[in-house]
Amino acid sequence: MRDAYAARILVVEDDSALREVIVGLLTRDGYREVHGAGTVADALAAIATWRPDVMLLDVMLPDGNGFDLLRTVRQTSQVPAIFLSARDEDEARLRGLGLGADDYVTKPFLPRELLLRLSAVLRRTYGAGDEPQVVHLGATTVDLGSGEVGRSDGRVEPLTAKEHAILERLARSRGAIVTTDELARAVWGDDFGYANALMVHVRRLREKVEADPSDPRWILTARGLGYRLARGDGR
């Protein structure tokens, strides 16, 4: 799937007002195939005939619950699911069940939060979406597809795998602070004991993308917290 907006999305939510709001905001965001279901039975019927690419699942449903629904679906299909829950306890329950849900959102949520998570799940599962393939850092451009840095003086320098992972993670949350723990998770898959290694990789990355690595303009340090990739407007 190259076009994330072509993904078939099944929204399973028993509250009709909320279901309409979610379907509406997904449609407005550009998703063309959005379908709603209010019960486990409706959802199973839709899954069997319509084969959604991703599901948004409410936990409490009139004729069952989302956990059991996902367990049933998982016997035959690996379709990704994002849970929408109204109970704090559900997260612990979900972890305990080991259902391998792809994400979890607690109600109430902001529309953009849901959209972000949805596109992240689509990207992870199908490699589709709006991944910033090219990151512009002033006169320097970084092509995340090829992993190459194009400097203003015409020089082209390749990024190492770790530098690439760091920059990709920062670019995904551009403008926001990404903690060292999150970066380590993105690079090493683990978040403990990589603080020094991370610092070394960031320094090398700066040498490649910054005009003056000792006074960085793009990869900024948030003291004691992590790093932030400045937006195009320099913020």
Binding site: A17, M60, A86, K107, P108
Partner: peptide
């Protein structure tokens, strides 16, 4: 709180 959160989600989204 479960019942309050569902309408809150609608209000927040709208």
């Amino acid at each position: 709180s479960h019942d309050v959160r569902t309408p809150l989600t609608v209000a927040m989204a709208e």
